[in-house]
Amino acid sequence: MSSPDKSNILRKYKIVFLGDQSVGKTSLITRFMYDTFDETYAATIGIDFLSKTMYLEEGKTIRLQLWDTAGQERFRSLIPSYIRDSHVAVICYDITNKKSFLNLDKWIKDVKLERGDDVIIVLVGNKSDLANDKRQVSVEDVEQLHNKIGSKFFIETSTKANHNIVMMPMIMLMQSQKLLILVLKIKLHNQQVHAVKYCLYEHIAIVII
């Protein structure tokens, strides 16, 4: 962070994906990395790592390092060491599984224990394509939690339908404030929208401070 002007140094950003078993972490990452979706992914054992170099405007490049994790509780003993210097923790839940939402608390605690407030927490409610008949977590539920923990971002996605959201978290460093801001470039009916302010709909919710 000391020499932000040296553009030849590739900045690396570490993003860790956490959350209960089978909420769709791997699916989210695969969508992000390759823009593909499989109906079912094999369960992740331990930790999977993927990295991707991204080209931003103004000729800058960054390297994103994504850590995919196993959701089962006992695997948490493996996790701390790679949460330790993450810039962003994406904590996922499944909107059709209330329990995965209730467990967010535990995951958030884990992250804060390792990183204090020096981390950006993004909450992702996955499987919004099943929202109509199977939804167990309401948008209000999430807003409440969001206010309580002061999470910086909250989105609901469907990695399956790819109709709403996600794709390219771009990370820019606001050097003056020592703050990472995650700009989520969202895709809505093929229109690219930069979410720059808090907006919340049934299927889409993007928050930027």
Binding site: Q21, S22, T40, A42, Q72
Partner: peptide, 12 residues
């Protein structure tokens, strides 16, 4: 937990 993993065993 088992139930959640059954279909995530060898989807290939």
């Amino acid at each position: 937990v088992i139930e959640r993993d059954l279909h995530r065993t060898f989807p290939d």
